[in-house]
Simulated assay, not measured.
Amino acid sequence: MTRSEPRFVDAILDWPGTWFLARLALVGAYLLGGIVKLTDWPAAVAEQAHFGMNPPYFWAALTIGIEIVGPLLILTGRLVWLGAGMLGVFTLFAAFTANAFWTMSAGQERFMATNAFFEHVGLIGGFVLVALVAERARRRA
């Protein structure tokens, strides 16, 4: 069977580091966010209060846990389905909480919230894909 992609694309896709770097690109913002929140607890609590989450201390702690544990599961290749599920549900919840564009009147704020909402949906698709790829690789091993 002949391949249709150029050789350099084939080489990139076959390189073992590509799988790790792709996962890091997907989860890096979450991991960094969790670390930043962990090192600035008052700001993490204030962020939750800003979005109306009560009690904000509980939601800040839960957010930090998800944003650190989920990426680590995906990056280490252990229980990838769980890490992807954690981050997918978290991202869906965040999209509805922080980007409720349907409640806004037309204008720049609604435009930006709409874009952010659907970017979150795209991330959720990425989490489903990383779980699928990891599961197929596990079954082949």
Score class of each variant (00 low, 15 high):
Met1Gln: 03
Met1Leu: 07
Thr2Gln: 05
Thr2Arg: 11
Arg3Trp: 02
Arg3Lys: 13
Ser4Trp: 15
Ser4Pro: 00
Pro6Asp: 09
Arg7Asn: 04
Arg7Gln: 09
Phe8Gln: 09
Val9Gly: 00
Val9Met: 12
Ile12Pro: 01
Ile12Ser: 03
Leu13Pro: 01
Leu13Tyr: 06
Trp15Val: 00
Gly17Ala: 05
Trp19His: 13
Phe20Thr: 12
Leu21Ile: 10
Arg23Met: 06
Leu26Cys: 10
Val27Asn: 05
Val27Phe: 11
Gly28Met: 05
Ala29Lys: 09
Tyr30Ile: 00
Leu31Met: 06
Leu31Asn: 06
Leu31Gln: 08
Leu32Gln: 12
Gly34Gln: 01
Gly34Thr: 00
Ile35Leu: 15
Val36Pro: 00
Val36Phe: 00
Lys37Tyr: 08
Trp41Leu: 14
Trp41Glu: 01
Ala43Glu: 14
Ala44Met: 04
Ala44Ile: 03
Ala44Phe: 02
Val45Leu: 05
Val45Asp: 02
Ala46Ser: 14
Glu47His: 15
Glu47Cys: 04
Gln48Ile: 02
Ala49Pro: 01
Ala49Lys: 06
His50Gly: 14
Phe51Lys: 05
Asn54His: 12
Pro56Ala: 15
Pro56Tyr: 10
Phe58Gly: 12
Phe58Lys: 11
Trp59Leu: 04
Ala60Met: 05
Ala61Asn: 07
Thr63Glu: 09
Ile64Phe: 07
Ile64Trp: 10
Ile66Trp: 10
Ile68Met: 14
Ile68Pro: 06
Gly70Pro: 08
Ile74Gly: 08
Ile74Val: 15
Leu75Ser: 06
Leu75Gln: 07
Leu75Gly: 08
Leu75Arg: 07
Thr76Arg: 13
Leu82Ala: 13
Leu82Val: 14
Ala84Phe: 07
Gly85Arg: 08
Met86Ile: 05
Leu87Met: 12
Leu87Tyr: 05
Gly88Tyr: 03
Val89His: 05
Val89Tyr: 08
Phe90Glu: 04
Thr91Val: 13
Thr91Arg: 13
Ala95Gly: 13
Phe96Cys: 02
Phe96Met: 07
Phe96Tyr: 11
Thr97Met: 10
Ala100Gln: 10
Phe101Cys: 02
Trp102Arg: 10
Thr103Ile: 00
Met104Tyr: 05
Met104His: 06
Ser105Ala: 14
Ser105Trp: 04
Ala106Asp: 15
Ala106Leu: 09
Gly107His: 03
Gln108Trp: 03
Gln108Tyr: 10
Glu109Pro: 00
Glu109Trp: 03
Arg110Cys: 05
Phe111Val: 00
Met112Asp: 12
Met112His: 10
Ala113Trp: 04
Thr114Arg: 01
Ala116Ser: 15
Phe117Pro: 04
Phe118Gln: 01
Val121Arg: 03
Gly122Glu: 12
Gly122Asn: 11
Gly122Arg: 09
Ile124Gln: 01
Gly125Ala: 04
Gly126Arg: 01
Phe127Val: 06
Phe127Asp: 04
Phe127His: 08
Val128Arg: 02
Val128Ile: 15
Val128Trp: 13
Leu129Ser: 07
Val133Leu: 15
Val133Pro: 03
Ala134Gly: 08
Ala137Phe: 09
Ala137Ser: 12
Arg138Val: 00
Arg139Trp: 09
Arg139Val: 11
Arg140Val: 07
Arg140Met: 11
Ala141Pro: 00
